[in-house]
Amino acid sequence: MAERFEIRFSGAGGQGLITAGIILAEAASIVEGKNAVQSQSYGPEARGGASKSEVIISDTPIDYPKATIVDACLAMTQEAADKYAVGIKPGGVLLLDADFVPREPKGDFKVIKMPIMRTAKEDLGREIVANVVALGAMIALTDVVSREAGEKAVLAKVPAAFKDLNQKAYSLGFEKVKELMK
């Protein structure tokens, strides 16, 4: 891992992307013992407006808690892609929800398209876990934490009745992106 790794999750308010960022930060800091900070920003709308969650992970102390040069970005909606898929470093990666981001942002970064919401709905029967599908996908894309650390953090965060569903969602996102990267 680079000394400082920056990840941005973006989408519409209510999609659970702030929660995904918190879980990633916990996987890095609590499970793996790295330094991590998480910040969030969202529009004045309670649901529906563009929102983002940024996670910075480092092996050394983090001196500035905001993302400056993003290594990896997720955009679940076109509005989020237009607003937040900026500042991705050359050679970085952008993961788009293939169904909700028809116009691909341009830049010197790799773009991966995956139908995240559709995957959650069709494969798991629950769109509500699309954020966990996306989290699994981002961890698979970046290797910023181990697959096991991500899964452990997910399972620590969700109620007991939903552990199986979230574990399946996480694994599905992880495996689907690994397939896309082949």
Results as ranks from 00 to 15, higher is better:
residue 141 L to E: 04
residue 121 K to C: 00
residue 124 L to F: 06
residue 10 S to M: 02
residue 42 Y to K: 13
residue 120 A to E: 09
residue 5 F to K: 05
residue 36 A to K: 10
residue 114 M to P: 00
residue 104 E to A: 02
residue 120 A to F: 07
residue 93 V to H: 02
residue 127 E to V: 14
residue 113 K to W: 00
residue 44 P to L: 13
residue 111 V to H: 04
residue 73 C to V: 15
residue 43 G to Q: 13
residue 136 G to H: 03
residue 74 L to R: 05
residue 47 R to T: 09
residue 111 V to S: 02
residue 8 R to D: 11
residue 13 G to M: 08
residue 122 E to G: 00
residue 84 Y to E: 15
residue 56 I to Y: 03
residue 75 A to F: 07
residue 77 T to E: 09
residue 62 I to P: 00
residue 17 L to T: 08
residue 123 D to C: 10
residue 95 L to Y: 04
residue 50 A to L: 06
residue 29 S to I: 07
residue 125 G to D: 02
residue 63 D to H: 04
residue 113 K to V: 00
residue 36 A to E: 12
residue 140 A to W: 01
residue 130 A to H: 07
residue 64 Y to L: 10
residue 41 S to F: 15
residue 137 A to Y: 01
residue 126 R to G: 01
residue 126 R to P: 00
residue 46 A to Q: 14
residue 139 I to N: 01
residue 68 T to S: 06
residue 129 V to I: 13
residue 51 S to N: 12
residue 93 V to F: 01
residue 25 A to G: 15
residue 47 R to G: 03
residue 134 A to D: 04
residue 99 D to G: 01
residue 89 K to S: 06
residue 45 E to F: 08
residue 70 V to K: 00
residue 76 M to I: 12
residue 129 V to G: 03
residue 50 A to R: 00
residue 23 I to E: 10
residue 19 T to Y: 05
residue 10 S to V: 00
residue 25 A to K: 05
residue 97 D to M: 05
residue 84 Y to T: 12
residue 108 D to P: 03
residue 65 P to Y: 13
residue 130 A to Y: 04
residue 129 V to E: 03
residue 22 I to E: 09
residue 14 G to Q: 10
residue 52 K to C: 13
residue 80 A to E: 04
residue 102 P to Q: 03
residue 12 A to N: 10
residue 66 K to Q: 07
residue 42 Y to W: 13
residue 32 E to R: 08
residue 10 S to H: 01
residue 93 V to E: 05
residue 62 I to L: 06
residue 66 K to W: 12
residue 129 V to H: 04
residue 84 Y to G: 03
residue 81 A to M: 13
residue 115 P to I: 11
residue 29 S to Y: 09
residue 23 I to P: 04
residue 67 A to S: 11
residue 133 V to L: 09
residue 137 A to N: 01
residue 69 I to C: 05
residue 95 L to Q: 02
residue 39 S to L: 12
residue 124 L to S: 06
residue 81 A to Q: 04
residue 104 E to G: 01
residue 63 D to Q: 05
residue 71 D to T: 09
residue 92 G to L: 10
residue 6 E to A: 03
residue 104 E to I: 14
residue 10 S to I: 08
residue 40 Q to T: 12
residue 29 S to D: 07
residue 9 F to S: 06
residue 51 S to Y: 06
residue 56 I to T: 14
residue 15 Q to S: 09
residue 65 P to E: 12
residue 64 Y to N: 13
residue 48 G to Y: 11
residue 45 E to S: 14
